[in-house]
Design a binder for these strands. Sequence first.
DNA 1: GCATCAAACGGAATTGATTCCGCTTCTACG
DNA 2: CGTAGAAGCGGAATCAATTCCGTTTGATGC
Lengths: 182, 182
Amino acid sequence: MRRDAARNRERILDAAAAIVAAEGVGGLSMAEVAATAGVGVGTLYRRFGDRSGLAYALIDEREREFQAAFLDGPPPLGPGAEPRERVRAFLGALADRTVAQLDLLVMAETAGPYARFGGAYEAYRGHLAMLLGQVRPEGDASCLADALLAPLAAPLLARQVRDQGVPVGRVKAALDALVAGL
Amino acid sequence: MRRDAARNRERILDAAAAIVAAEGVGGLSMAEVAATAGVGVGTLYRRFGDRSGLAYALIDEREREFQAAFLDGPPPLGPGAEPRERVRAFLGALADRTVAQLDLLVMAETAGPYARFGGAYEAYRGHLAMLLGQVRPEGDASCLADALLAPLAAPLLARQVRDQGVPVGRVKAALDALVAGL
DNA sequence: GCATCAAACGGAATTGATTCCGCTTCTACG
DNA sequence: CGTAGAAGCGGAATCAATTCCGTTTGATGC
């Protein structure tokens, strides 16, 4: 990447983070980010594709940590534990990180019809399908993975946890009950 | 409702249906619907609230049939069958009707962050929670209902069924496997 | 140092949803 | 019938995302 492009990328992410800190995710409009960063809106789109891409980029650092944890980290999230245990740990950890970044994820996942499947969705699905294949070799690991990931969609969690006051623990427990039956 | 309002409601729905028939869901813009119906855009919003509300209204007729079927119709969808059997029938039927109306539902559910929970979502959740309470009285029926409904979100089904060529049957089978374990 | 050109830029223009508000039309009631 | 006012209406204005395209700039080879 050209040096000016890298510099602008940083400026944009800094500006976006500052706006989120100051006004919340609601204040994060493309025009305002561009103005604050001192670049044109075209530059935002060149760098991040769209609103959803910008939101995912803002989350990226913690995202890398999370991915590292389930790919390589200590059990039960990482390798070493029983597959079923890893599935539960993975879904629980994903629930936690989704709740931790709820606003940005709601924005990222609802930027367009398929925005939810951008970001790291494929990585999650692949990982989960791999584990489910070990738990239940005769099952349809790929569809099951989609089905178990779906309840962790940010807008649903937002409604449950924030609007209805359901504790995250209950959501995780319900998923555990489903996984236990496999 | 005033008579002129009812007439406009019909005109709008007719115009919207005609546009969908002619150009697909992609051509369904609020301005075009208003122009075709011969009303102002304000009238659309007064009647339907937003884009999502219009899409749900277009689906409404089949929707009533579906609701009547699981509330009052013959088993296994309606009363009379074992609760677990009814859960499976309900999820299967919901999957079918979602796929049958895929384009409109993708539009309706992605009009805004919480648009998915408009329409009949509460009715589905209540019904499913009631059945799950009979299957597993000690479980968290409410969270389980949300978790089992989530995999039937229109955008996810669109991706699986349309983009990836997964047969609906596989999606249903994966849900059955989850329900079987409860 | 300088020419070249692909990559990157900026910001006006476009597109489409949603809001606003002054005007019109029903309908109920006297 | 006449009229008050609630309900409804139209469409211009607003707001934000996204696209487009002419201009600028950094990297590379000489």
